[in-house]
């Protein structure tokens, strides 16, 4: 599903590469934790999958597509197959829960009938039934993150990328968030989650890829956050 082959990324005006000859394979339906200290290249890894950045060398395949040969014109179609969740939720403050989720479908031109059917289903999946007409500022952080997950998942993407989704949320609420991510993973969606949260990684017992200074220092199935910590 995601295939990195010897990928190196150096940002302009920087000597040290953000990713240094990284090769990794993520299969369909896998759940992968991406761990490592700040600046180790986790976010770069995710941005490369979305083709928000281009690698300096190496090849990236996502959902069977060679990103180097994917024209800019087709990048939006790639992104429709990838859902994204961030630490800061990125909801639209002037739209309610339903509208925030529906927005993702409206802007890719889905018909209204389809939206009316699908959005309530997804809102229920993330556990926000009955809160469809709340505004984001009336929700807790955990609930806002659920809205963001509903928006990321509403188009049934093949891949869900989560960049520290529990970073702004207390540990008790994080468990709920992880349950939703696990539920999404069980529908067959590949999940890649970058995180600092050792407790979550240890409790989930999923594959762990550890980055340090742009290099993969560990790739372990059913791993934990790290012995050293």
């Amino acid at each position: 599903m995601i295939h990195f082959d010897n990928v190196t990324k150096v940002y302009a005006n920087q000597n040290r590469p953000a990713l240094d000859h990284v090769s990794v394979d993520v299969d369909k339906g896998e759940f992968v934790f991406l761990v490592g200290p700040s600046g180790s290249g986790k976010s770069t890894f995710l941005r490369l999958i979305l083709k928000e950045e281009r690698p300096n060398s190496g090849a990236i395949h996502v959902a069977g597509k060679d990103l180097a040969r994917l024209s800019n014109f087709k990048v939006p179609h790639l992104r429709r197959r990838i859902g994204c969740v961030f630490q800061d939720f990125r909801l639209l403050p002037n739209k309610n829960v339903y509208e925030n989720v529906a927005f993702a479908l409206e802007v890719i031109g889905k018909p209204r009938r389809f939206i009316r059917k699908v959005v309530p289903e997804v809102i229920e999946l993330v556990g926000l039934e009955g809160k469809a007409h709340r505004m984001p500022d009336e929700l807790s952080g955990g609930e806002q993150q659920r809205v963001a997950m509903a928006r990321a998942f509403v188009n049934r993407p093949m891949i869900l990328l989560a960049d520290e989704p529990t970073g702004n949320i207390d540990p008790a609420t994080s468990i709920g968030i992880m349950k939703v991510l696990d539920r999404i993973n069980r529908t067959g969606t590949t999940v890649v989650m970058a995180t600092h949260d050792a407790a979550i990684v240890d409790s989930m017992r999923k594959r762990v890829v550890e980055l340090e200074d742009g290099k993969i220092v560990r790739d372990q199935s059913r791993g934990v956050y790290g012995q050293a910590y």
Binding site: L50, P76, H77, R90, L92, V107, I108, R151
Partner: peptide
């Protein structure tokens, strides 16, 4: 920029944005 950022993220076409 918030709206357009999300539109980009969920794969709205350039024309639509």
């Amino acid at each position: 920029r918030r709206e357009t950022g999300i539109m980009r993220l969920v794969g709205a076409s350039n024309l639509y944005i």
